[in-house]
Amino acid sequence: MISILDFTRDDLEKLFEETDNMRKRLDEGNVPKILSNSIIALAFFEPSTRTRMSFETAAKRLGANTISFTSEEAISVSKGESFADTIRMLDGYSDLIIVRHKYEGAALFAAEIAKAPVINAGDGKQHHPTQAMLDLYTIRYLKGTVDDLVIGVLGDLKYGRAAASFLLGLTHFRPRRIYLISPQELKLRPEIKELLMERGLNIKELNSLVDVLPELDILYVTRIQKERFPDLREYEKVKGSYRISSKLLFSLAKKDLKILHPLPRVDEISYDVDSTSFAAYFTQARLGVPLRMALLKLILLGGES
């Protein structure tokens, strides 16, 4: 499980149905410990507390055991031992390996080496398929469908792997239109844009949110990082014009616009949005657990329930 493009729409629909099921079980407080015979390795070579805890919670809810290294161990692992050797070791211990790494393609390489299945929990600036699945599921949960929606994707589209993965995931569906909203410096990389168009997405790039905000059903916001700008003044200028406030939303957005964000956020969405009906990012984060539960189940036990 390396890229969101490895899946078909049918695979995703099946995953989403299983996620519905897991969500119901969690609400009822009735989760069968179907993975109690499994050991899952959390191989986070790059720290990501949020994603790791979401996977760990999902595994434990289903009764699985987890093994992992601490971030300090991860550093010594990455210094002393080759990635390949570490993967081979974990392969010997566990039934499933979840990999996060700062190098692009690390998860695919791990999958070539290991006999156990590998889940990509983010590699380099490219793929973060479980985040993309979660984003798509959240939209389906909120709107009933991913098709026919007008979706804005805002922020750092060049380096942000969440945004790129989300956009690739959207190609499995038929949204009406996608607006890519970013400063010039952080526009989507041309090879990804080409791929999206080849796969049939109707996309339009622009610099400003306000022009299209009234049309949007979904606004996907990502963080714009200071480090991406050689000139700090440029950053300061850009930052302000991409900040979402409740005032902006109440004056321009559709009533049922929902805002997603892969989190953590810094100040791109002001706190006064949190209590409005627009805010869906906490719901999105919460749904990460049932979605990952469904994924673990489908990978380790197959389709049968």
Binding site: S82, F83, A84, H101, K102, Y103, E104, G105, A106, L108, F109, D123, G124, K125
Partner: peptide, 29 residues
């Protein structure tokens, strides 16, 4: 930052041919 460039790993660069004239290759990793 491609995994195929990481030192001391038993990995060979691997490309998929995406076009022939002119040649264009895509890293599979």
């Amino acid at each position: 930052t491609c995994i195929s460039r990481k030192s001391r790993e038993p990995i060979k660069p691997k490309f998929r041919l995406v076009s022939t004239n002119p040649i264009k290759l895509q890293c599979i990793y």
